[in-house]
Amino acid sequence: MGKSFSTPKSLSDNYTHYCPGCTHGIAHRLVAQAIDELGIAGRTVGIAPVGCAVLAYNYFTCDFQEAAHGRAPAMATGIKRVRPDLIVFTYQGDGDLASIGMGEIIHAANRGEKFTTIFINNAIYGMTGGQMAPTTMPGQRATTAPAGRDTDQTGMPIRMANLLKELVTPGYITRQALLNPKQINKAKKAIKKAFEYQVEGKCFSFVELISTCPTNWGLTPVDALKWAEDTLLPYYELGDYKVPE
């Protein structure tokens, strides 16, 4: 009874700089597992964002580029257009993708660029120390919303999967979570499916992952999972929002 478990080859053996309990590490592993299982490491190019995951390239063993804040989808477009044979993924946080990079992600999705985006939604700016993000919840405290997000002043949190599904161009748009083993296993399948769509050259694929930020939420890692479950999931409903025929 039982099964084995080992570190995917596409993950380097460097220790990560992420805070204890931060689910970035889980997301990295799931991406690396997808790359290993599809045997595409030799032709994969990852693109790191600006944010906590800016150092993602230290944790993967495939070719990597480092984008300017929010511009990873444009860089991925550049690669896919000149080298359609390469497998390209962007790994971005909510400040990178939903704030400064909103234009890039919407137009890449709308053009149906055949790369894969892994979108880490933890409702806060991590690297810069806890500022409000477009995904920060109403009333949720952040260093730039000390009394909690005032939606009269800053609008409502942006639901990227819901937004992108409205584009008519076909694509795979899904929202998953990393808050418990069942969700993580489902997220793993979704990420692999996203990469499979790319390998088949079928469509743009986008996997939003509800994640935690214990440090900037001011919670223990376990309490952060609970808070995300209670506060984020009701608003950011999980599931496949668009699947190509």
């Binding site: 099964k3 992420y18 590490g25 889980i26």
Partner: peptide, 20 residues
């Protein structure tokens, strides 16, 4: 321990492995 690897799945740092 029943080697179910739930701990491995939850670990953000691939600090736990289960080998045959």
């Amino acid at each position: 321990c029943i080697h179910c690897t739930i701990c491995c799945i939850m670990c953000p740092d691939v600090a736990i492995s289960v080998v045959e």
